[in-house]
Amino acid sequence: NQASVVANQLIPINTALTLVMMRSEVVTPVGIPAEDIPRLVSMQVSRAVPLGTTLMPDMVKGYA
């Protein structure tokens, strides 16, 4: 089972991601792979992401 990136806190719209905002977790459906966490740092979210939400490619500007 592949771990995905999950929000560790509420991430407001247009916030630049930092390591403390993200954790890896095995979830369904699968989201952005956990190994991409270093690449996500400083990228902005395109919408508010609630705590515990799996990050999907369309939620991060410039990821897809």
Rank of each mutant, 00 (worst) to 15 (best):
A16D: 04
I37D: 00
S42W: 10
L10E: 13
A34P: 07
P38F: 15
G52I: 02
T28V: 10
A34Y: 06
Q2P: 15
T28H: 06
P38A: 12
M56K: 13
R39L: 11
P29C: 05
Y63K: 03
T15E: 07
A48I: 07
M22Y: 02
I32Y: 01
S24V: 10
L19F: 15
T28L: 05
V49W: 02
V6Q: 04
L17S: 00
M56C: 07
L17P: 02
V5R: 01
M21P: 00
R23M: 04
R23I: 05
A34S: 13
Q9I: 14
M22H: 00
P12S: 10
M21S: 04
A16L: 12
S46Q: 13
A48T: 10
M43S: 08
N14E: 09
T54K: 05
P57M: 10
S42A: 13
Q9H: 08
M56Y: 11
Q44S: 11
A3F: 11
G52C: 07
V20S: 15
P12R: 10
L40T: 00
Q9A: 14
R39C: 13
V6Y: 02
R39S: 09
Q2V: 10
P57W: 14
T15F: 09
S4T: 05
R23P: 01
M21H: 06
D58I: 11
P29Q: 07
I37Q: 06
E25I: 06
T53C: 09
A16R: 07
M21R: 03
V26P: 07
P50V: 05
L19Y: 14
G62M: 08
V49I: 14
Y63C: 04
T54P: 06
V45S: 10
R23L: 04
S4I: 02
T18H: 04
A3Y: 15
M22S: 00
Q2D: 15
Q44M: 10
L55M: 13
G31P: 01
I37L: 12
G31M: 03
K61N: 09
V49Q: 02
Q44H: 09
P12I: 05
P29E: 11
L55K: 01
A34R: 04
V41E: 04
T15Y: 09
L55S: 00
R23V: 04
R47K: 11
L19E: 04
M43W: 12
L17Q: 00
V60L: 10
M22D: 01
T53D: 10
V45N: 03
T54N: 02
M22P: 00
V5W: 02
T28P: 01
V41T: 07
K61W: 07
M22F: 07
Q2E: 15
L17G: 00
M56D: 04
L55A: 00
Y63S: 03
T18M: 07
M43E: 05
R39N: 13
S46A: 15
L55Y: 02
I11D: 01
T28E: 15
Y63W: 14
A16T: 06
T53I: 11
L40E: 00
R39V: 09
L55D: 01
V45I: 07
V49H: 02
I32P: 00
V60T: 01
P57I: 06
I11Y: 01
S46G: 13
S24M: 11
N8S: 15
S24E: 08
Q2S: 14
N8E: 08
P12N: 08
A48Y: 09
V60Q: 01
L19K: 07
R23F: 04
